[in-house]
Nucleic acid binder design. Structure first.
Lengths: 155, 155
DNA sequence: AAAGATTGAGAGGTCAATCTTA
DNA sequence: TAAGATTGACCTCTCAATCTTT
């Protein structure tokens, strides 16, 4: 090994994160595609809208806080979702600079229809051989990681 | 929550994986870019070559087993690396269908030069607040995940 | 000028089809 | 015909510049 200053143990943990993510996400995306369901990115956005409250409507800005994408990528993604009829774009009433994004009925259905495949994928490609305790440990430990870097996106 | 069949605990673990990965990888890529070093994907390929043995040379096919990319993506990436002078492409002597990919001197240097930034990134954005024991737990648990799905790439 | 969102250019990814050698 | 790798068409991401409303 060519280095020091970062221990072997830390490095092994890091590699396991990269691998586990690549393998599990890849497999789940494939399942979704083969089942004709929406991809994970779409799911995340629609889910953020559904859980946002009664009207399932969020400002672009707020969506941005939930989704790990650059501003431009999110802007294009919302366009795509709107074209697919899963969300509806509306200029914000209170501030015409803003954009309101609302989940449509079709969007609700897409979310509901994708969940069985998605959850089966999580089970099969991630949770299958983990005990409940191990899941708790992972959640606790990786939770700390997310706090380390406040997910600062571009200007 | 709209579902059952996958427990809350498992779901929380899954989300923590997605988040930790996105945040840490994003931050590290930014650091590398700002420091003028090679991106993570390039690092992975060059590293696979370096660790492959004395001549730092691998068949395309073997590289594929180490790298999480589709065949075509890897093909283009190797082209890019060759144009940048970091690897050298050679038709394989024993089987003219094959491609040998060799790490160049410049490739070695790029790897060496990027490591301090990369390792500092891993420390700061991932390992910083984790104990050695937690790292071991993560490595062990996420290691199981990677085994679940044999990283089958496209035909 | 600043905040909110979009757009243009370029990099890099995927699948499916193709070319080449065994 | 199969194995190894490349190419074409298309999609999505990023950064930087731009447009619009405050």
């Amino acid at each position: 090994v060519t280095k020091k200053s970062l221990g072997e143990v830390q490095l092994a943990a890091w590699k396991s994160l990269l691998n586990a993510h690549a393998v599990a996400v890849g497999a789940i995306e494939t399942r979704l595609r083969e089942a004709g369901e929406i991809p994970l990115t779409w799911y995340d956005v629609l889910w953020a809208l559904r859980k946002s409250g009664d009207d399932c409507c969020l400002r672009f800005r707020q969506l941005q806080d939930e989704i790990v994408l650059s501003r431009s990528a999110l802007s294009r993604l919302i366009d795509t979702l709107a074209k697919a009829g899963l969300v509806k774009k509306q200029t914000c009433a209170k501030d015409a600079r803003g954009l309101d994004v609302e989940l449509t009925e079709k969007g609700h259905k897409a979310l509901t229809s994708a969940w069985p495949i998605y959850s089966a994928g999580i089970t099969e490609h991630f949770a299958r051989q983990l005990t409940a305790e191990e899941c708790q440990q992972v959640a606790r430990i990786l939770g700390k990681v997310a706090e380390l870097t406040p997910t600062c996106r571009n200007t």
